[in-house]
Amino acid sequence: MKTSKEFTNENYLDYVKHIAPKTKQKRTIFHAFWVGGLICSIGQGFRMALESVFNLKGDELSAYVSMIMIFLGAFLTGLGVYDRIGKYAGGGSIVPITGFANSVVSPAMEFKTEGYVYGTAAKMFVVAGPIIVFGIASSVLIGLIYFVGYRIF
């Protein structure tokens, strides 16, 4: 039996690549830039507001800012607005933490029809799960390396 690779017809693939429509590079990059910049600026606005009103600092400040941004991302996803922003901005709305919220809420909403336990709760992390896995794994690894480093040096 032949595998997928053995079926590959390079000539055909080259030809398809040649005539396939191209992504409009400049336009998408510009969209990503201004939307991404704007989302970060909104975050900065909250940062400054929390700093001056509640006198928060350091990690606590960042944590509350990310909480607010996640709230906004989740809320806009619920309203059905975030996918519109995503279509326009691409990377500009995927990379900010609001995009992380979007990737959690969208499958949770989508799979609600399969129940609140195995639908919403279980499918919540189909897109965002790897972020948590790799995030925590890398932090533990870094922590251990630094722990050993601090003891030796």
Binding site: T28, T77, R84, I94, S106, E110
Partner: peptide
Amino acid sequence: YPLELGSTRPP
């Protein structure tokens, strides 16, 4: 993907 995920559709 889920409908509400803000992904772009390639051309």
